[in-house]
Amino acid sequence: MIRRELPDDAEAIRAVTAAAFRGIEHSAPPVEPGGDPGEATLVSWLRADGGWIPQLSLVAVEDNRVIGHVLATRAHVDGRPALGLGPVSVDPQRQRAGVGTALMHAVLGAADALGESLIALVGEPAFYGRFGFAPASPLGITAPDPSWGDYFQVRTLTQYDGRTGRFTYAAPFDRLS
Rank of each mutant, 00 (worst) to 15 (best):
G86L: 01
M1G: 11
L103K: 01
P144C: 10
F133D: 12
W148M: 14
G34W: 05
L103M: 07
L118I: 10
R163D: 02
P29T: 04
P33I: 08
A28E: 05
A134M: 10
A60Y: 02
D112G: 11
E62M: 13
P37T: 06
F21N: 09
T164G: 05
A106M: 03
P29V: 00
A75M: 06
H105K: 08
V107L: 11
G38A: 11
A102M: 08
G140A: 09
I53H: 05
A10Q: 09
A126M: 06
L56W: 05
M1E: 11
D78W: 06
L85Q: 06
A102R: 13
G35H: 07
D8R: 15
H105Q: 12
E32L: 12
A48C: 10
P87W: 00
Y160F: 15
W52I: 02
S177A: 15
G162S: 08
Y160I: 06
P144W: 06
E116L: 01
A20R: 11
H76W: 11
A48F: 04
D91L: 07
R155D: 10
P54D: 13
H26S: 13
H26A: 15
I141H: 00
F131V: 09
F21K: 03
I24S: 07
D36S: 13
R130A: 12
H69T: 07
H105I: 03
M104V: 01
I67A: 01
V88Y: 03
Y169K: 07
D112R: 07
T168F: 03
P54C: 11
P81N: 08
G140S: 10
V61I: 13
V16K: 07
G123F: 08
A82Q: 03
W52F: 15
R74I: 00
D9G: 10
G68V: 02
A48S: 14
G86P: 14
I24R: 14
A126F: 03
G51L: 10
T142D: 14
P87C: 07
G123L: 12
V122K: 00
A111C: 09
Y128F: 12
G23M: 13
Q93I: 09
E32P: 00
S27G: 13
G98F: 01
R65A: 14
L85S: 05
T168Y: 03
L176H: 07
G129V: 03
L71D: 00
L114G: 02
R3L: 08
P146I: 10
W148D: 11
R163F: 01
R175Q: 15
A75K: 04
I2L: 09
L83Y: 06
D36G: 01
P33W: 04
